[in-house]
């Protein structure tokens, strides 16, 4: 089984502060890996390093498209990383608020289209066809996410849960093989969380997309993750299945709390 993402001894400093210290992380093909840890543990920093927003001080980030060759992506531009097949959502929702829901997803398809300025002005057949395809595919994604009815509404007018879903839809539009979700269940009510859980599992089974997620909602983490990685103070303190993590005394002490009783 090949790893789609392999992070090796990643270290990241902000001035004198060591945010990440020799962190190893692997995500296998079709795997759902959860990244948990207390606030300030370096989870989002790790995401930002992987997606190219930060340039790590040391270590290697290697991604492998299923069936492709491994590629070291340290120092790549954010847009280039996305182009290579990794997409993300943000902890605090970052949609394009005044653009319509459909347009938001169409932006996700930007890197899979090619029309340039000349094409935009002349609007030749290839450009028109590409544009139609972009609309069709984006609309199909909205259908799958139950957002088709609001396609022409501005993204900011959507309710919170729908905005989160739209962010995932937009990320999927870039045709990733690895999806990074930063606290997708934050601020959701239990029903929305259940829907989200189902959605994530569906993305994995239907498209074989691997998923790396940061999440504080232990219910969802324990039920969907194949593997859980625990960070604390920038270091990986544990890794294992849900059952192993639940029993791990270090993790319980650092994060879960002494009286943590995982739901069955």
């Amino acid at each position: 089984m090949g790893d789609v993402l392999a992070v090796d001894r990643l270290t990241m400093d902000f001035g004198g502060l060591r945010a990440l210290c020799t962190v190893d992380l692997r995500v296998g093909q079709g795997e759902i890996v959860a990244l948990i840890g207390p606030n300030g543990a370096g989870k989002t920093t790790l995401f930002n390093c992987i997606t190219g927003i930060y340039a790590p001080a040391e270590g290697a980030i290697v991604i492998t498209r299923p069936g492709g060759a491994p590629r070291r992506i340290n120092g790549f531009k954010v847009s280039r990383v996305t182009e290579l097949g990794m997409a993300r959502t943000f902890q605090n929702i970052r949609l394009f608020p005044t653009m319509t829901v459909l347009e938001n997803v169409m932006i996700g398809r930007h890197c899979r289209a090619h029309a340039g300025i000349r094409g935009a002005i002349i609007r030749d057949r290839a450009t028109r066809r590409e544009e139609e395809e972009t609309v069709a595919r984006s609309y199909a994604i909205l259908c799958r996410f139950g957002l088709a009815g609001q396609a022409d509404e501005p993204a900011r007018s959507l309710p919170y849960g729908a905005q989160r879903r739209l962010e995932i839809a937009r990320a999927l539009a870039t045709e990733p093989f690895l999806l990074l979700l930063d606290e997708p269940a934050a601020g959701m009510n239990p029903r929305e969380t259940d829907e989200l859980e189902e959605l994530i599992l569906r993305i994995r089974t239907e498209e074989g997309i691997s998923i790396l997620l940061i999440e504080h909602d232990m219910r969802i983490v324990m039920s969907i993750s194949d593997r859980i990685v625990v960070l604390d103070h920038g270091e990986k303190i544990a890794e294992g299945t849900a059952a192993e993590i639940r029993e791990n005394p270090i993790v319980v002490k650092a994060y879960l709390g002494e009286d943590f009783h995982a739901p069955a």
Binding site: I53, R94, L95, F96, M99, H110, C111
Partner: peptide
């Protein structure tokens, strides 16, 4: 569209491959 996305949110715009 890419320009408008850039105006709306630079970071998200980049993360979407622009």
């Amino acid at each position: 569209r890419a320009w408008v996305a850039l105006r709306e949110d630079e970071i998200a715009c980049e993360a979407m491959g622009i």
